Amino acid sequence: MRDLAETVDRAFAAALYAQDDAGLDTGASLLVADQGGWPGVGRELLARGEAYVRQGWERGWQPADVLRLVRRDLDERHLRITGDLIAAEARRYARLPARWGAAEVWWTGDEEYADRLAQRERADRFTLATAFLEVLRLLIRLPSIEPVGPLPGDPADALAEHAHIEPRMLGRIRALLAKAEATNFPEEAEALSAKAQELMARHTVDEALLAASGKGPAQVPGACRIGVEPPYEEAKAVLLDAVATANRCRAVWNSGFEFSTVVGFESDLEAVELLYTSLLVQGTAAMTRAEAAQRSGGRKRTKTFRQSFLLAYASRLGHRLAETAEHTATEAPDNLPALVARDVAVTSRAEEMFPRTTTTRLRGATDHAGWEDGTAAADRAHMGGRQKPLPR
């Protein structure tokens, strides 16, 4: 056992801490040199990988964040291996935090993992050892980022109270947005999305009033991360910011790691996730239809068309969502103090998490037709119910 541990130590020293890839071959060769010891090597790699995964959690990362980074920098095999390590680490806990999303262990025992992995991947041991080392190298290089929730096993997580969107209402919202995404009729999509946003906004008001009266559970703002991935990540970040602001949350974009951190009360975070995902689906579908119309007119459209389309779509929806939020808040002036208190708590939490932020200069929209079509698509998808379109 000591020889195996020493071999793995030597492989790690060669492969994980070098600044280039030269040591990967050396490390992988050391791991597969003793063909009879492959099951033990797999068990040892799994155990050490679990420790590196836990180290990532302690630095503020969550499973979706790590998988997003692996997908960007490596490939599908590495993604599956990373999922295995996350599942192996997660099995230690009786309960996982919300949004943790770890897969289950699919192999029977850790001694069998290496052989089962080779069967699943249909790859030789050297290839698998190299892929494993590449995953571990990424994990140990994860920097510290702002934590957005408790770690697995944290006793405070079991005691925390969160006011989620009521299940029946959540089902209605999801059904409305699913229909809005499926229809090819803009007016129907608008009506369905507007109704979903209305349900979200009224739930926020009700929850704020309960908290102000002391009848609801004591709550504090939390946070979650939402992926903002290429292509057209700038336009997606603008759209997410608009949805977050309309739902009384704050969004901070990290372009380097392809996510935005959204700060707010739990039910509002749920609303942001649902609405942003739906509007992004609707916007992408509208962009595809607009491109087809452009091509049918004999005009070739490029990446600049799509970039301009989505920027216009996001910008326009920002105005529409802000208009809707203001309308809902002012329907009953007596509700305003409770909503203001909620806004102050969210702003304070966001400033505590991100005391220093910078402003990003977006790439301009250079395709006029793309901007016009994106604006029109946003008018069709707006959340404002019966409000008239804003002047262009």
Score class of each variant (00 low, 15 high):
residue 74 L to R: 00
residue 144 S to A: 15
residue 124 D to P: 02
residue 332 A to R: 14
residue 140 I to M: 00
residue 23 G to N: 02
residue 42 G to M: 02
residue 281 V to P: 09
residue 69 L to C: 03
residue 61 W to R: 12
residue 138 L to T: 00
residue 376 A to T: 07
residue 80 R to L: 14
residue 249 C to P: 00
residue 36 G to Q: 14
residue 370 G to L: 09
residue 85 L to R: 06
residue 291 E to Q: 12
residue 153 G to W: 09
residue 185 F to D: 13
residue 270 E to A: 04
residue 238 V to I: 09
residue 89 E to C: 10
residue 4 L to H: 12
residue 355 P to Q: 01
residue 92 R to L: 12
residue 202 R to K: 11
residue 312 A to E: 05
residue 97 P to N: 11
residue 242 A to E: 11
residue 108 T to H: 13
residue 177 L to G: 09
residue 339 L to Q: 10
residue 92 R to Y: 07
residue 300 K to W: 15
residue 265 F to S: 07
residue 269 L to Y: 02
residue 288 T to L: 13
residue 248 R to H: 07
residue 188 E to M: 01
residue 251 A to L: 10
residue 184 N to E: 10
residue 309 F to E: 12
residue 35 Q to C: 10
residue 281 V to F: 13
residue 87 A to F: 09
residue 152 P to W: 04
residue 19 Q to N: 07
residue 214 G to C: 05
residue 191 A to C: 13
residue 48 R to A: 03
residue 48 R to Y: 04
residue 298 G to W: 05
residue 54 R to K: 12
residue 167 P to F: 10
residue 28 A to G: 03
residue 390 L to P: 02
residue 112 E to L: 13
residue 32 V to E: 11
residue 4 L to N: 14
residue 209 L to P: 08
residue 23 G to T: 03
residue 297 G to C: 14
residue 80 R to D: 11
residue 92 R to F: 12
residue 86 I to M: 09
residue 169 M to T: 14
residue 261 T to P: 02
residue 347 T to Q: 08
residue 11 A to S: 14
residue 383 M to A: 14
residue 149 G to C: 05
residue 134 E to D: 09
residue 2 R to S: 15
residue 266 E to R: 02
residue 106 W to F: 05
residue 187 E to D: 15
residue 117 L to C: 06
residue 350 A to F: 01
residue 128 L to S: 00
residue 313 Y to W: 08
residue 392 R to D: 12
residue 31 L to K: 09
residue 312 A to M: 03
residue 180 A to H: 02
residue 196 A to Q: 10
residue 250 R to G: 04
residue 318 G to Q: 09
residue 13 A to P: 05
residue 65 D to A: 13
residue 11 A to Y: 13
residue 8 V to T: 07
residue 124 D to I: 03
residue 13 A to D: 12
residue 175 A to Y: 04
residue 285 A to I: 06
residue 65 D to L: 14
residue 387 Q to E: 07
residue 229 E to R: 13
residue 31 L to C: 13
residue 150 P to C: 12
residue 26 T to N: 13
residue 88 A to S: 15
residue 205 V to G: 00
residue 359 T to A: 11
residue 102 A to R: 04
residue 250 R to W: 01
residue 365 A to M: 08
residue 282 Q to L: 14
residue 133 L to K: 11
residue 61 W to V: 12
residue 14 A to F: 14
residue 247 N to T: 07
residue 74 L to T: 00
residue 123 A to T: 06
residue 169 M to W: 10
residue 95 R to C: 10
residue 195 K to R: 12
residue 266 E to A: 04
residue 220 V to P: 09
residue 77 R to W: 08
residue 322 A to H: 07
residue 340 V to Y: 07
residue 74 L to W: 08
residue 232 Y to P: 08
residue 134 E to S: 06
residue 136 L to R: 07
residue 261 T to K: 03
residue 307 Q to H: 15
residue 216 G to F: 03
residue 8 V to A: 09
residue 99 R to T: 01
residue 9 D to T: 11
residue 119 Q to T: 15
residue 304 T to A: 15
residue 189 A to T: 04
residue 313 Y to M: 05
residue 61 W to Q: 10
residue 312 A to P: 04
residue 83 G to K: 01
residue 242 A to N: 00
residue 16 L to Q: 03
residue 248 R to E: 01
residue 365 A to D: 06
residue 73 D to C: 05
residue 30 L to S: 01
